[in-house]
Amino acid sequence: MEVTKQSVSGTLESSDIMITIEKSTIGNQIELNSTVEKQFGDSIRKTINTTLREFEINNAKVGAIDKGALDCIIIARLKAAIYHSVSDEDKQSEVFKA
């Protein structure tokens, strides 16, 4: 899938994560700022990368401000951000419901 425009999902509340996604020209980049960086920083980056791969997104810049969200919330917020950033045709993809 192609990221066509910038979008944001999530909040800065505790147990949430705010994810911004936009087009990139140099592959996928992740910029993470997390309250649990020491314990879970690597894991969060891995989760984001895995989800991007599932959507076959290869050129996206993902900014994430994490306030201790669980994996399922990270995935939900990222999926929502992707949903808002792709074409209407791509929005129909079953990958969103996977």
Binding site: C72, I73, A76, R77, K79
Partner: peptide, 13 residues
């Protein structure tokens, strides 16, 4: 949409 994704993932896992 955002809330729908949250419930979808949370209820799943």
């Amino acid at each position: 949409e955002n809330a729908r994704f949250v419930l979808h993932e949370a209820l799943r896992t």
